[in-house]
């Protein structure tokens, strides 16, 4: 059986790709018919707690949508890595950080020789 983390990823991918509001039943039908709807609901409420998903309580059953575009989350996350957000130390230095323009130019020249 897939782990909760894998399920969360599948659900988010589905919501991002569809771009629509989906009910837990819809999600189940799209992902895997053998999943219990309660499992899907658990996953959706975990994602809601993480701020990844918004719930439309105006409809019955409740319908869920991704809170932001996948690209926006990606940019936000990578900016964290690049040190523009507060917790730079969270990640160990990214592969290359800050080489000055001249150093970069020197490097390219050496490699092209």
């Amino acid at each position: 059986m897939a782990s909760l983390g894998d399920l969360e990823r599948s659900v988010m991918t589905l919501l991002w790709d569809s771009g629509q509001k989906l009910s837990a039943n819809d999600v189940r039908d799209e992902l895997d018919e053998s999943l219990a709807v309660t499992t899907v609901l658990t996953v959706l409420s975990r994602l809601e707690k993480k701020g990844m998903v918004t719930r439309d309580r105006g409809s019955r059953p409740h319908r869920y949508a991704a809170s932001a575009l996948r690209e926006d989350h990606t940019v936000e996350m990578l900016n964290e890595v690049l040190g523009n957000a507060g917790d730079r130390e969270a990640v160990l230095a990214r592969f290359i950080g800050s080489v000055s323009e001249e150093e970069a130019a020197t490097l390219r020249r050496i490699l092209s020789e």
Partner: peptide
């Protein structure tokens, strides 16, 4: 994506 602080860190490494 804007790059973070520039500086000494990678010069000597390079």
């Amino acid at each position: 994506l804007s790059t973070g602080q520039g500086g000494i860190i990678t010069g000597a490494r390079l």
